[in-house]
Amino acid sequence: MRNALVLYFQYVGVSIRGQLQYRASFVMQSIGEFWAHVTEFIAIWALFHRFGSIGGWSLPEVALLYGLVNTQWAITDMIGRGFDAFDTMVKSGDFDRVLLRPRATTLQLAGLEFTLRRLGRLAQGLAILVWALVALNILWTPGKVALFVLAVAGGVCLFYGLLVVQATLCFWTVESLEIMNVFTYGGLETARYPVSIYRPNFRRFFTAVVPLACVTYFPALALLGRADPLGSTLVFQYAAPLAGLIFLLVSLQVWKFGVRHYQSTGS
């Protein structure tokens, strides 16, 4: 395990050194990603400017959700490129090289790329998050700090799991993968507002199947000390982010199954 971790960080170092050879391009892309999401938030701000609130949530409260989910995704996007771009790897046959090395396939793919340009996106997510936390005057307790960290970690696990599932699909088809964007980018769009505003089936889907609400909405309720119109308890709100971890563990099992399929068909 320690050895694997050391190797992972070596992979990361290699990836960063490679990208820094194109420094100007990396700086430009980071700024671009930051700016793209700033305009996105301007649109949200404009809606609050006109309507005041959504489902009883104010702009800073929604900004907490927005900042949380964007930070989660930005981190995942930064460390999950190996899975996200897995279709090109299967098409080119480079996955065979991964299998030819005496290390876990997941470790090799996770280490494949540490995408620096996502720092722009991460900076935007964190900036919104910090602004929200300052504007909200949350009464921090050790429990809340722990919950906050757990929520970010749970969200990263969940999104990472989605990328692993998306990569697993590549063993069967490399077409139509765009449909996975429904869960990643669609999830991002969904989770920036409280799920209580959505229709029940939709809500259930993002709580029980792809448990995005468990890493954003429920912990946010606990942080804000808001009562849940859906009736969740405080204990549930604290435990909910674990669903992200469970999702990742299940995804990794699915991945193993996919690799076995690949080894028997060699597609």
């Binding site: 809606l47 309507f51 005041g52 609130s53 959504i54 489902g55 009883g56 980018y185 669609g186 769009e189 969904t190 507002y193 505003i197 959505y198 229709r199 939709f202």
Partner: peptide
């Protein structure tokens, strides 16, 4: 995406 966005506008307008 359309379904999600429409639901958010419904929520904005309803209150």
């Amino acid at each position: 995406f359309g379904v999600v966005i429409v639901m958010t506008y419904q929520a904005f307008y309803s209150a």
